[in-house]
C-alpha cells in the first residue's frame, strides 16, 4: 500500500506543543489588554504616588512624603470617614431591596407594571438622580425644604449643612441602589423551590421563620451579588458627590475618589502625585473587599466540583 510506505511526517515543535499552546494563544489578546489597561496603570499609579508632579514640569522624587502628608491631611480624614459612612449606610440597600422584592413577588393584576416602576430609578442616569435630589433638597424651591418649612416653620437646606449633606447624598444614592438589589432578589425568588416552601408550610413554618430558614438560604447567591455590587458602588461613589455638592460645603462631603479627582485633575489642583497616593489608598481598601469576594467565589467553585 502506498500509504504504508510513506515515511511519517517529522513532528515539528509546533505540532508537539499545539495542545498546550492553543489555549494561551486564545487568551493572549485578552491578557495583553488586561496588562495594558489594568496592570500597567496600577503600577504607574504606584510609581506616580512617589513623585511631586504637576503635569507640566519634570516630576520630582518625594519618596513616601505624599503618604506622610495624607496622614496629617484633615481633608483626607474627612474623605475616608465619609467613605466608611457610605459603605455602612449603602448596605441598607440590601435588606430594603429584599423586602421590596418579597413584597412585589406576588401574582396580582398588573404586577409587571409595579415591578418596572420600582425598577425605574436604576434606569435613570446617576447624574439625573443627583440633579433631582439636589432640587428636592434645594433651599427656597425644593420640595423637602418646603415640606419641612410647612411643618416646623423653618426649612432645612440639607446640602448646605455640613453635618447633613453626606447623608443627603447617600439617600440619593440608595434610591437607585435599592432598585438594583430588588431586581437581583426578584430573579432569585423565581428560583426558590416551591416544593420546599410547601414542605416547610406543612411543618408549620411561617412568617419570619419561613423567611430566615427556608427562603433566605436559597437566596444566598443573590445576596452575595447584591452585597458585592453595593460595596463596590459605595466605594466608587463619585458622580453624586460631584453633581450635588462638588464636595462642599467646605469639603464636608468629599469621598476618596472625589478628593483624588480634585487634587489631581480639577481646576484648582494639579498634584498628580498626591492624587495618585489617594488612589493607591482607595485601591488598597477595595482590594480587601475584592480579594474577599474572589476568595469566596473560588472556594464555592471548588466545592461544586
Amino acid at each position: 500500500m502506498a500509504l504504508a510506505s510513506e515515511t511519517p511526517r517529522p513532528r515539528t515543535w509546533w505540532r508537539r506543543n499545539q495542545q498546550r499552546l492553543t489555549p494561551w494563544l486564545f487568551l493572549a489578546p485578552g491578557m495583553a489588554m488586561f496588562v495594558f489597561y489594568v496592570i500597567y496603570p496600577i503600577i504607574a499609579s504606584f510609581r506616580l504616588s512617589l513623585y511631586d508632579y504637576d503635569g507640566l514640569s519634570a516630576p520630582e522624587w518625594l519618596g513616601l512624603a505624599n503618604y506622610a502628608e495624607l496622614w496629617t491631611d484633615p481633608a483626607f480624614t474627612t474623605s475616608l470617614y465619609n467613605n466608611v459612612l457610605w459603605l455602612v449606610l449603602y448596605l441598607l440597600a440590601v435588606p430594603a431591596g429584599l423586602f421590596i422584592a418579597i413584597f412585589l413577588n406576588q401574582a396580582v393584576m398588573g404586577i409587571r407594571i409595579y415591578k418596572s416602576l420600582f425598577f425605574f430609578p436604576f434606569v435613570i442616569s446617576q447624574v439625573v438622580v443627583g440633579l433631582m435630589f439636589a432640587w428636592f433638597y434645594a433651599p427656597n424651591f425644593g420640595l423637602l425644604y418646603n415640606v419641612i418649612e410647612y411643618f416646623t416653620g423653618k426649612g432645612v437646606a440639607i446640602l448646605a449643612d455640613p453635618d447633613l449633606a453626606t447623608y443627603g447624598i447617600i439617600a440619593a444614592g440608595l434610591w437607585p441602589q435599592i432598585a438594583y438589589v430588588m431586581i437581583l432578589y426578584l430573579t432569585g425568588l423565581n428560583n426558590v423551590a416551591p416544593d420546599q416552601v410547601e414542605a416547610a408550610r406543612l411543618d408549620g413554618a411561617k412568617g419570619w421563620k419561613m423567611l430566615w430558614y427556608v427562603i433566605l438560604p436559597q437566596l444566598r447567591p443573590a445576596t452575595f451579588i447584591a452585597v458585592v455590587v453595593t460595596v463596590i458602588g459605595a466605594l466608587r461613589s463619585f458622580d453624586l458627590v460631584s453633581i450635588m455638592t462638588n464636595g462642599g460645603p467646605f469639603g464636608s462631603t468629599r469621598v476618596l475618589s472625589y478628593y483624588m479627582y480634585e487634587q489631581a485633575l480639577s481646576e484648582y489642583g494639579y498634584r498628580m502625585g498626591y492624587g495618585a497616593a489617594i488612589a493607591v489608598v482607595l485601591f488598597a481598601i477595595m482590594m480587601v473587599f475584592i480579594s474577599g469576594f474572589i476568595w469566596k467565589m473560588v472556594r464555592d467553585e471548588r466545592g461544586v466540583h
Binding site: P139, N140, A157, I158, L159, A160, G248, P249, F250
Partner: peptide
C-alpha cells in the same frame, strides 16, 4: 443669605 453654600450664584441673583 443663610443657605448660600447650597445655591449657585444664579440662584442668589434670583433672590
Amino acid at each position: 443669605t443663610e443657605n448660600h453654600a447650597a445655591i449657585d450664584w444664579q440662584d442668589a441673583a434670583t433672590l
